[in-house]
Design a protein around this nucleic acid. Structure first.
Length: 447
RNA sequence: GGCCCCUUCGUCUAACGGUUAGGACACAGCCCUCUCAAGGCUGUAAUACGGGUUCGAUUCCCGUAGGGGCUACCA
């Protein structure tokens, strides 16, 4: 998202690259899921997607070049040997580093052994000097040479590795800015060294704080595309999620929180990115989604809620009025769908607590009286309906509430929701009377 | 273990040496009200700790603590 916003705010190009170099873990459906999530969120890229798995020739050529120039070398240790060294270092309480033994093999011998088919990896010759990373959000970060070792560029099966592909691609695609998770800061000196070896300019880096779960732990399992789909499925609008996520780590500088895409695209700037990690608060996401639901035109809100409603309603005047009636009462399009369902079908059950609380022994008789009076109402609109109900209450010598609450229960199956007379008017006389009679029957038989 | 990053209300954040430390979510109260919301008003609540530097530190430096990351023939 920040890469997109940055590109848009500066007139740059937003390129999508799928880094699927790990043949064991990469799967077609995973990238498809990412693409779908990006489309839903509105992360429209200008170029790509480019799949690293399809660009192996490029990496192979780069590796050959580094080898030829003596900036990289072949190493012939077996993984098991390295494991032993690593375990030994660990047991001794020391930091493990690759011995660098491969550096001492002469180019001729290296060439000969490779041609003979001996398995080997390609490692980068890390320079024996401090590597400085100039980070746009963290400032200057230094890495001492003893902390870095000659990492592997190409596996012994010939597959190029992530760090290598990234730098080759960044150079090839002329990437100017890399905005990525904080977790990559420690990898950046590798990249800087690689760019130097490749003889290409080093892009600018901006390392972003990670997003944490409510437990303050790094968001796991439910991250990335899967999480985006989860929020979509509970009725969060994509523009809400975009807005919310944009504010996790960035702020426009004033107190505004509800921002359009266009506003974010012009206001975004790297100097307003914070360095600290942030906790993802679903409560605030829900609040923000409600804000978006308040703003949406009724037709659109209806259309976007319909897939979730038990019965999708056509955009009739009644449906649109129902949307207006409920928009301040729901936080997700799912909830809107549920609220709208009451206008499409009679309640199939009544809220149990509501029945207990609102239905008293005398209620059946009171409701009978109300039904009788409502039957006489010819102008089925809010005013006359309220008048009829209040008159009934007066005749019965009870407060209006004694009738209002059971009526709402009869009409919608629940005790909370939109103002009763609005609901009645929208339902229409026929539907309302049918529901009232069936409720009357139900509580009558209950005794 | 080694290296690196981070640290303002419970949460998201503003304040780029001088503010009664601001806003938002959540929470509480009040108003509105047929219920539930929405909305309005009010309130509780923070500079992790310890040292410096400075006339003055949330802000700059060092240390401690806590959290996170990297340390793969993963990304």
């Amino acid at each position: 998202m920040y890469n997109l916003l940055f590109a848009r705010s500066t007139g740059g190009t937003f390129i999508l690259r799928i880094e699927d170099t790990d043949v064991e873990r990469s799967r077609e459906e995973l990238s498809a899921q990412i693409l779908a999530a990006m489309e839903w969120l509105g992360l429209d890229f200008d170029e790509g997607p480019f799949y690293q798995s399809k660009r192996t020739d490029l990496y192979r050529a780069a590796a050959e070049k580094l080898l030829a120039e003596g900036k990289a070398y072949r190493a012939f240790e077996k993984p098991e040997e390295l494991d032993v060294e690593r375990k030994a270092a660990e047991a001794a309480g020391k930091a493990y580093r690759y011995s660098g033994a491969g550096r001492d093999i002469s180019p001729d011998e290296s060439e000969r052994r490779a041609r003979a088919g001996e398995r080997h990896v390609v490692r980068l010759k890390m320079p024996a000097e401090t590597i400085v990373v100039e980070d746009l959000v963290r400032g200057r970060v230094e890495f001492l040479p003893e902390a870095l070792d000659d990492f592997v560029l190409v596996r012994s099966d010939g597959h190029p590795l992530y760090h290598f592909c990234v730098c080759v691609d960044d150079a090839d695609m002329r990437i100017t800015h890399v905005l990525r998770g904080d977790d990559h800061l420690a990898n950046t000196p590798k990249h800087v060294a690689l760019f130097a070896a490749l003889g290409t300019p080093v892009p600018q880096f901006a390392h972003l704080g990670m997003i944490l779960g409510t437990d303050k732990k790094k968001l796991s399992k439910r991250h990335g595309a899967a999480a985006v789909e989860e929020w979509r499925d509970v009725g969060i609008l994509p523009e809400t999620l975009f807005n919310f996520l944009a504010l996790l780590g960035w702020s426009p500088g004033d107190d505004r929180e509800i921002l359009t895409r266009a506003e974010m695209e012009t206001l975004f700037s790297i100097d307003r990115i914070g360095a600290s990690p942030s906790v993802f608060d679903p409560e605030k996401l829900l609040w923000m989604n409600a804000q978006y639901i308040h703003q949406l035109p009724a037709e659109e809100l209806l259309a976007r809620s319909a897939p979730f409603a038990t019965a999708g309603l056509p955009p009739t005047p009644v449906a649109l009025a129902a949307v207006e009636l409920h928009r301040t009462r729901v936080r997700t399009t799912i909830e809107m769908g549920r609220a709208l369902a009451a206008y499409a079908a009679d309640p199939d059950e009544y809220d149990a607590d509501g029945m207990k609380k609102q239905v008293k022994p005398e209620t059946a008789a009171q409701m009978a009286k109300l039904v009788e009076n409502l039957e006489a109402v010819s102008d089925w609109t809010i005013g006359p309906l309220e008048e009829a109900l209040r008159r009934t209450a007066e005749e019965l010598g009870v407060s209006a509430g004694k009738l209002i609450h059971p009526t709402r229960l009869a009409l919608t199956g629940i005790t909370v929701g939109a103002p009763l007379f609005d609901v009645m008017a929208l339902l229409g006389k026929e539907t309302a009377m049918r529901r009232l009679r069936s409720f009357e029957k139900r509580i009558g038989s209950q005794g």
